[in-house]
């Protein structure tokens, strides 16, 4: 039996050893947008000073700084797909990337708010969000980067 593992949403992030978020970049002015619009959709540049309408995929930096963070201690309502019963809380973080965007994400499994601080470094990982009839569906998550020295304390 083979287990398939596909992104829960297509075209928003790459997988593998060095996963990245994929933004769309305006080919006229370079403005980035995440999440990227669907490939078949018209894309009007968000920059009010630009009338660009063509865009290309652009991978974003894998690491950034935590802008803020929280958690969900109660099960969110549908269309959230619960994976455990009873519900297990998970953490969420907004991470500022060097390109100049802040991107929300769940925090990697096994980490909670106690592992986070505003300004701390976090890196992108890809983990399973839920499973459906096509197999496991993956999502990007933010993983705290434990700095040398702190690691020894844990």
């Amino acid at each position: 039996m083979t287990t398939t593992s596909t992104p829960a949403v297509a075209g928003w992030f790459t997988t593998g050893d060095d996963p990245r978020l994929v933004a769309s970049r305006c080919t006229t002015c370079g403005t980035l947008v995440f999440p990227p619009p669907p490939p078949e959709a018209a894309s009007f540049c968000r920059n009010p000073a630009c009338d660009g309408e063509t865009h290309e995929p652009a991978e974003l930096s894998r690491t950034g700084r935590v802008w803020s963070y929280t958690d969900a201690q109660y099960q969110p309502p549908a269309p959230y797909v619960p994976t455990t019963d009873p519900f297990e809380p998970f953490a969420l973080a907004a991470v500022e990337l060097p390109e100049g965007l802040v991107v929300l994400g769940q925090v990697a499994a096994g980490y909670g708010v106690a592992d986070l601080a505003v300004g701390a470094e976090a890196e992108l990982v890809v983990e399973t969000l839920y499973a459906d009839e096509s197999g496991e569906r993956t999502i990007w998550r933010w993983k705290p980067v434990v700095e040398l020295g702190e690691e020894a304390d844990q």
């Binding site: 803020s68 963070y69 958690d71 969900a72 959230y80 505003v118 969000l129």
Partner: peptide
């Protein structure tokens, strides 16, 4: 719709981001 489906991001979670800052 996506914020619930992909992240489980409720309204209070947004309020909490601002509070934590």
């Amino acid at each position: 719709w996506l914020r619930f489906r992909l992240l489980g991001m409720t309204n209070p979670a947004y309020f909490a981001l601002y509070a934590r800052r």
